[in-house]
């Protein structure tokens, strides 16, 4: 009995020793580490060619990618100089066709202005045909680029504004010089010509930065269209002016709760 107990402990110890490597691996598996992975076989994992956003000793700033040259635009910006070029583009012709074939069209689409007699004036209409798809694209882009500050309803109380308000209430210096973003449904934006709104997105205004590097031209116009639609949707409409089927739906709601 004593002998078998000893045997049991010896074999048990061996098994436990054998389990130690597994325990170390298991620990490593569930721990995060700042050291890069162990590459046992390197193959051609790292090649000396330039990839986007890789460093390169060729240029003074150490970047492989070259910055945007002022006065030029990327071919991928979905704006074409003529119809033939647009048609030749493999992906985007049907989806995002905007053809610029005259100086005037360039001013209208790229700058949101018409220039006559040496004077520039913002255009009041969106120079791209507005379809449901275009508006939905505008909503998508609005949700991405505008909502953090202006909020989904456009009233200027997005998550960032609320966060900074909390910081300010706590007396944190991080609240900085933040000012509440503009109410996009208010008169200031509502009566701005479409070209003016486009210009704000392109070049920024007051505390708002320029978004021309983040949002392509056509998407900026889509956002303009959506903002106009959003402002309309936020207008208060008296119950008695609603179409009858909508009013029927609201029947159960007390009148006091619907708008003013």
């Amino acid at each position: 009995m004593k002998r078998s107990a000893r045997k049991f402990f010896i074999y048990g110890d061996i098994v436990l020793l054998l389990l130690i490597p597994f325990a170390i691996i298991a620990l490593h598996r569930y721990e995060r580490s700042p050291t890069p992975r162990l590459a046992i076989i390197q193959d051609m994992d790292q090649m000396p060619y330039l990839k986007p956003q890789r460093p390169s000793p060729l240029f003074a700033d150490g970047r492989a990618m070259r910055p945007h040259i002022p006065g030029t635009m990327a071919r991928e910006d979905f704006v074409f100089l003529n119809t033939a070029e647009a048609r030749a583009h493999p992906n985007n012709w049907k989806k995002d066709h905007v053809v610029i074939n005259s100086g005037q069209k360039y001013d209208r689409i790229m700058l949101g202005q018409v220039i006559s007699g040496g004077k520039a004036r913002f255009i009041s209409h969106i120079p791209i045909p507005i379809t449901r798809r275009f508006l939905e694209r505008g909503r998508g882009k609005f949700d991405i680029y505008c909502t953090p500050c202006h909020g989904y309803d456009g009233r200027g109380n997005g998550t960032i504004n609320r966060y900074v308000n909390r910081l300010r209430a706590a007396g944190s210096p991080d609240a900085g010089t933040w000012v509440q973003p503009t109410d996009l449904t208010g008169p200031g934006v509502q009566y701005l010509p479409a070209g003016g709104l486009y210009n704000v997105i392109t070049n920024g205004i007051a505390a708002m930065a320029s978004y021309k590097d983040q949002i392509p031209v056509v998407d900026r116009w889509a956002i303009v269209a959506y903002v106009k639609a959003l402002a309309l949707s936020q207008k208060v409409v008296p119950v008695d002016r609603l179409p009858p089927p909508v009013r029927a739906k609201l029947g159960a709601v007390p009148a006091a709760k619907v708008g003013k």
Partner: peptide, 24 residues
């Protein structure tokens, strides 16, 4: 739109951080 999901340029950080936490 591209093969590469670009890291943002510094400008994107500064869209907000000119005003928020400007001295952090």
């Amino acid at each position: 739109r591209a093969a590469f999901a670009a890291l943002p340029p510094t400008q994107t950080c500064m869209n907000c951080h000119t005003a928020i936490a400007p001295k952090s």
